[in-house]
């Protein structure tokens, strides 16, 4: 990593450290969303189909496993949405001053990854207090991948749509994707829902939460999905920060 990238990442992290309201929200909102859901569902059990087997779990465990990646996706998506919008003008100037697009892309992706890791870490810390997934490392990996995929999607949406439409889409999209389309109870899902960003990560999360076996293909699919959206994101980023 060259000094330009390390300088830009360091400065980005300093800016983040100086936004106490944002840091507070990134802690409080997962607590409200994940902790809230685990608390408000009644004491009951349900049987869900996961990887071809029927697993009986409590409702609280089920929602904990389902809403953790949703939280990570929602929050990192919104952070990604504003990461570009808020720094676009200054980034233009930095490009003109000599930063290559590649340096700026790497530094912004690093910042996005840092944001995704923070959001994931907070979400996981909250959920793990009240719920023990069968495989904690796989559960952590699936949550982080969700945050990364939606973080980059947030960037793409942020530069492609207006602020109003962007926030609405990020409010709507992770919710319907992971809570509805990828919900293990949605057994009549059609083939095209496999193309949605939450397909591999939700399956990986549910596997890690409730089954012994680890299906590596879910992770390979999620990493592949992340790579594709990252390439699209880099192209979009390069286009919007292009100078002569």
């Amino acid at each position: 990593m060259n000094t330009r990238i390390t300088t830009a990442v360091t400065m980005g992290l300093r800016e983040f450290r100086r936004t106490p309201a944002l840091i507070g929200l990134l802690i409080a909102l997962p607590l409200y969303f994940i902790g809230g859901f685990m608390y408000i569902v009644p004491e009951a059990t349900l049987t869900i189909p996961i990887s071809g087997e029927s697993v009986t779990v409590t409702l609280s465990e089920f929602v904990a496993a389902l809403v953790t990646p949703v939280t990570a996706g929602l929050l990192s998506g919104i952070v990604g949405l504003f990461l570009m919008q808020s720094s676009k003008a200054a980034d233009d100037r930095l490009r003109l001053a000599g930063y290559r697009s590649r340096d700026l892309v790497v530094s912004r992706v690093s910042l996005l990854a840092a944001g995704g890791l923070i959001v994931s870490a907070v979400s996981l810390a909250i959920v793990l207090v009240g719920f023990s997934p069968v495989s904690i490392p796989a559960f952590v990996a699936a949550t982080v991948l969700t945050a990364l995929i939606y973080g980059v999607l947030g960037v793409i949406i942020g530069v492609s749509l207006s602020r109003l439409a962007g926030v609405y889409v990020m409010l709507f999209f992770p919710y319907v994707d992971m809570l509805l389309f990828q919900n293990p109870m949605a057994t009549d899902s059609t083939a095209w829902t496999k193309a949605l960003p939450g397909y591999f990560t939700t399956k990986a999360t549910m596997d890690a939460a409730f089954t012994q076996g680890l299906d590596l293909w879910n992770f390979i699919g999620a990493v592949g999905y992340f790579t594709v959206v990252l390439i699209v994101g880099v192209v979009v980023f390069h286009r919007v920060t292009a100078i002569e």
Partner: peptide
């Protein structure tokens, strides 16, 4: 419009743009 990073200090702004100018 200045087009600078709001939450960086004056010193840090010199440092960042100095890096850009090599």
């Amino acid at each position: 419009e200045p087009r600078l990073y709001d939450r960086l200090t004056v010193d840090e702004t010199f440092e960042l743009f100095g890096e850009a100018y090599e």
